[in-house]
């Protein structure tokens, strides 16, 4: 099954469970919690996504040392290649 298919199956499953529960004669407080549940889930997922991307953005490594080391290596490479007769 494709990833799209898996998503549709998952959503269909959750959606029908929700619809079935919503169709039952539940006590009022339960019902009040149940009806907006899909919206809550969507909002929660949105928050989770923002938090995850935000955290990973803030902790994305800046490889200053790697860049400095590369510049050093480039100097060494240039010198050695010139010695070996490379004409740039």
């Amino acid at each position: 099954m494709t990833k799209l298919g898996q998503w549709l199956c998952g959503l269909l499953l959750l959606g029908s469970a929700w619809a079935a529960l919503a169709g039952l004669r539940l006590p009022a407080p339960l019902r009040q919690a149940l009806l907006p549940l899909p919206v809550y889930l969507l909002v929660a997922f949105g928050c989770f996504s923002l938090a995850t991307v935000g955290f990973r953005l803030a902790t994305f490594n800046d490889c200053e040392e790697a860049a400095a080391e590369l510049r050093e290596h480039i100097r060494a490479a240039r010198a050695d290649l010139a010695r070996r007769g490379l004409r740039c």
Partner: peptide, 15 residues
Amino acid sequence: GGVYGWDLKRKLISR
């Protein structure tokens, strides 16, 4: 792992 030479926008798009 990480990157060097990317501004915030580029990092945001990447993440």
